[in-house]
Amino acid sequence: MEFLETISTKFNYWIYIIIMMIGLYAMISKNNLVKKLIGMSIFQTAIILFYVSIGYKENATIPILYHDQVHGAQHEEAGDQNELSNAVEEAAKEIHVAADEQAEHGLEASHVDHPSSLEINPDHFANPLPHVLMLTAIVVGVATLGVGLAITQKLYGEFGSIEESEILEQIKSAK
């Protein structure tokens, strides 16, 4: 029973390790170069899954403030456009949205009471830091995949094959 509980709380980590092993095995022992690159991409997504899993919080929403939380602030900013920055800051602080209350009373609650400061409970939003790190990693990942594919095409033009063993044989026989 204890074992089942361990799995149910950590099954994401289990899956990430399994996918990572699949990708690592493909990178080591597949003979075809395109298969190796697919394995590399699977490895990358496994690492990204690990980071995103770390940033997840139970009962948390996406890391974007929703409309009702910022709507009042923007409305008041529009009123005093000529004011300087600290006035805008004060206007933003004047809006108080308690996410707890919203969850209980629905969306009307934030319209009814005009609270006094922008209070955000960090536990109600997913952790944005791993998302930022991984967002750039995905785009850089596709760029490196492109470089790998370009080298594959160059090797095919040179040796007429994309199998690693055949290319190695040709290099050996040429020596």
């Binding site: 770390i54 939380q69 933003a92 939003f125 952790n127 944005p128 791993p130």
Partner: peptide, 27 residues
Amino acid sequence: ANNYRLSQHYITQTFTETTVPNMVTAV
């Protein structure tokens, strides 16, 4: 990872510091 005060600062202070609701873009 979630308790570290840097990410908590990002969540709570991003809107007052930059007026951008999407924290990921701001960070």
